[in-house]
Write a protein that binds this DNA or RNA. Structure first.
Lengths: 110, 110
DNA sequence: TCCATGATTCGATAAATATGGAAATATCGA
DNA sequence: TCGATATTTCCATATTTATCGAATCATGGA
């Protein structure tokens, strides 16, 4: 049962988002936009200890869902929209051949 | 940090798909369509012991991603398209405010 | 250089998840 | 009823994931 690279990446991304704190982090980063948010601010907002949050940020980073840059003493995290786009595309194309799922492609259109 | 029911359900669905065998099962069920596939056939196809596969099917079922019906001695599993639809909608609406993600709504349209 | 700040790494521990054989359950045909 | 088949549940075990304080690393200001 060899597993292809795309599935591998998809599983990492799904796993990264399948956790309360990490899903919350990602949603905050999406709201924050390209400016992103510092690790400390995220920890504050979520009420999670810095070391715990660092662990979760590493998971998101490993999954390619977030980017990071240093800005003075802070490390700013940003949502990677392309990665999320890729994940949604994968789910739509590989896991969504049914009629109700076909409808989603046409939603918000016209 | 109270967590709302929708996020809770999303996390369960993401977690259910974030596993090699379960993602493979779900893809096979999507391909199979409404007829679905028997547990044993799935186990055969994936080369996973029956008891292990049963554990994974229970996870998918618990997450609401699959339905099941008994047909004689077999238990037939089917993909729940509405659930996948809901998951994709959640990701699109809550985790995808960026420009590249906005594009996906318009893909396949026109 | 020294200190404060922001963040990660380390380490120990707890909890959840995955695996698969053996036993139990359900259905059907003879 | 008996046996074969399909599947799940039980159990023990192995692995992975989550938590968080303490120690460490990096940066910038006095």
């Amino acid at each position: 049962m060899e597993i292809d690279a795309t599935s591998q990446a998809t599983i990492r991304a799904l796993g990264a988002l399948a956790q309360e704190h990490r899903l919350a982090v990602f949603r905050l980063l999406v709201q924050a936009g390209p400016d992103g948010m510092a690790a400390g601010v995220l920890a504050d907002r979520l009420g999670v200890p810095a070391s715990s949050l660092s662990f979760h940020l590493a998971q998101l980073s490993n999954a390619g869902l977030v980017g990071q840059r240093r800005e003075s003493r802070s490390i700013i995290y940003t949502a990677d929209y392309a990665a999320m786009n890729g994940l949604i595309s994968f789910l739509t194309e590989n896991c969504c051949a049914g009629s109700s799922c076909a409808a989603i492609s046409e939603r918000d259109c016209a």
